[in-house]
Design a protein around this nucleic acid. Structure first.
Lengths: 206, 206
DNA sequence: GTCTATAGATAGATAGAC
DNA sequence: GTCTATCTATCTATAGAC
């Protein structure tokens, strides 16, 4: 792969993430992506073959960050540290990959028609892992017994909302864009709800 | 308005909600709406004039339920009852208006380009009301001091997710559709997190 | 590898008969 | 009020020159 190819592909992916995020798959015109990427439209077809391939490439570009977010559950043995770090990691994805997050959310919302099967499998595996880990901690008496999956749904939703429903949030807060303080406050509120809701003890009581 | 007109408009709105929810605004074909509604396509244009008008009519059809959900904050004076009822009300919207909820979510996600200004204003007013009410309770010592708006974002996100990201949730739970038990468990987890996170006392201690 | 110019398909909208 | 047939704009995709 030539240097010029690598650079152009990256420019196209970056532009595409943004346009797909703002308008959705069907409403985005490849011409708009080309314009934002400052490249002629046929280059997009030269590099990616079709609009759908390009869209899938964008979806795949978020997959790694998403899968990496569960690292705290592997590194930490106590729920307090793991959950706190996990919530922060999920919020950082919303902050640092706002466009890709939205594209992913939109895809899921419409039933994941374009999401490659292998990505679905890896994400499902991650969900099972997280859920089982929570169950173990509950059995060990390290946290209260809640339905682990519903706990995960709440964490996912309340962290992703800062990317997906950015419009609603900036409007409610009366600002143009979110800053560090907003994400810190979000982390504090969500962490507190999760930690207190699960009555996670600041170390074993099993 | 004739009886036949009223009936046809309702059939079209119902079909449109579903198709818009499943495919998004740009990807839905008016022909598909007509087919699902069992009416010829020109009838849609006869009744609604354009695809965009029909879409707006769908958006407006969820507005009332959404605004009504905040009733518990007006009826109840203590945060425990109000928050518990509010969470349940929001979950019921996800359960009972899954298509309209998704259409609304998709609209917000893309920056609300079609949402009429008066609806935006009414929703903003509701947000201010809810947020101020929470602040009062905090000042009265009835609940812990969290950022009220971030608390609302978490409640909105974790209740709406059962409609918006239904695909992900049914997949994680390994079932085709959610039943009563699922919504009960969701209510329990979310309510517990909110109540414990805010240290809401089971009546005054101010 | 890059880009202009264009083909081809899709789907929103409507004319006009009933 | 209803619907068949069709017009037309838009946009994906590519042929072919450079």
């Amino acid at each position: 792969m030539s240097r010029i190819r690598a650079r152009n592909e990256e420019k196209i992916i970056r532009a595409a993430s943004r346009v797909f995020a703002e308008h959705g798959y069907a409403a985005t015109k490849t011409a708009d992506i080309a314009e934002l990427a400052q490249l002629p439209k046929p280059n997009i077809y030269y590099y990616f073959g079709s609009k759908e391939n390009l869209y899938r490439a964008v979806l795949e570009s978020v997959t790694e960050p998403l899968l990496a977010a569960s690292a705290p559950f592997e590194e930490h043995q106590d729920p307090l540290t793991a959950l706190t770090a996990y919530i922060r990691a999920k919020l950082l994805i919303s902050r640092d990959y706002p466009y890709a997050s939205k594209v992913f959310a939109s895809e899921i919302m419409h039933g994941a028609p374009h999401l490659p099967e292998d990505i679905i499998q890896r994400l499902s595996g991650q969900t099972r892992f997280l859920s089982e880990r929570l169950s173990q901690w509950m059995e060990q008496g390290l946290m209260a017994r809640l339905e682990p999956k519903h706990l995960l749904f709440a964490i996912w939703a309340s962290t992703q909302t800062y990317a997906d429903f950015n419009w609603q949030i900036t409007m409610a807060l009366g600002k143009d864009e979110l800053d560090e303080t907003d994400f810190d406050q979000a982390a504090e509120v969500i962490t507190r709800m999760v930690i207190e809701g699960c009555r996670v003890s600041p170390l074993a009581e099993a």
